[in-house]
Amino acid sequence: MGIIGWILIGLIMGALAKAALNRKGGSWVGSLLIGVVGALVGGFLGSVAFDRGIGSFWSPWTWLLAFVGSVIVLAVWSAISGRSPQR
C-alpha cells in the first residue's frame, strides 16, 4: 500500500475512531496521526494474534485492523492526557 493509501486510511479511520469514542474537535492532522498510528498498531496486533496483518487498500481486513488500532490509540491517548469524552 502506498503513501496515499496510508493517508486516506489514516484520515478516515482517525475520524471514525473519534466518532466511536465520542471525541469532538481536533484537527484533520490529529485524525490523520491517530489513524496512521492506529493502522500500524492494528496491523501489528493482527499479525501477532491472527497471523494476518495489513494488506491491500481494498481489503476489508485492512480497514478493520486500522479501525480497531485507531480506537486503541485514541483510548490510550485519552487516558494518558487525562481527557474525558466531550459532549
Rank of each mutant, 00 (worst) to 15 (best):
F44S: 00
F50G: 01
A75E: 09
P60W: 15
L16P: 07
G42Y: 00
V48I: 12
L32N: 02
A19Y: 11
A19H: 13
W58T: 08
V68P: 06
S81D: 15
I34M: 06
L65E: 09
G53H: 05
G46K: 05
N22I: 03
T62I: 01
L11Q: 07
I9H: 04
S70L: 10
A15P: 00
S47Y: 12
G26E: 07
L21H: 00
G43M: 09
G14R: 04
I3C: 07
L21M: 11
F44A: 12
V48T: 11
I12D: 04
V68K: 03
K18T: 04
V68N: 07
G38Y: 11
P60N: 08
I12A: 15
S56D: 14
L33T: 12
L11G: 15
V48K: 13
W6C: 01
G30T: 02
L33A: 12
L21T: 04
G69T: 05
I3A: 15
P60V: 07
L64K: 04
I7C: 09
A15E: 13
W63K: 00
G53A: 11
V37D: 06
A20S: 13
M1A: 09
I4T: 11
V76R: 06
G25C: 09
W63Y: 06
I72D: 08
P60T: 04
G35R: 03
V71I: 13
G10R: 06
V37N: 02
G26R: 00
V41R: 02
I80L: 15
F57C: 08
L45C: 01
L8C: 13
G42T: 00
V41K: 04
G69M: 04
A49Q: 07
S27L: 03
P85H: 07
W61M: 01
L64G: 06
L32D: 02
G55R: 12
V76P: 06
S84M: 13
N22K: 15
L8M: 12
S27F: 10
S70G: 08
R83E: 15
F50K: 07
G10H: 10
V68L: 14
S56L: 10
I4G: 08
S56C: 02
I9W: 05
W61Q: 08
V76N: 00
I9F: 12
G5S: 15
L45N: 03
G53R: 05
T62L: 10
V76F: 14
L64T: 14
I34A: 03
L74A: 07
S70K: 04
G26M: 03
V68I: 15
I4R: 13
G69Y: 10
G53K: 08
I4Y: 12
A79Q: 13
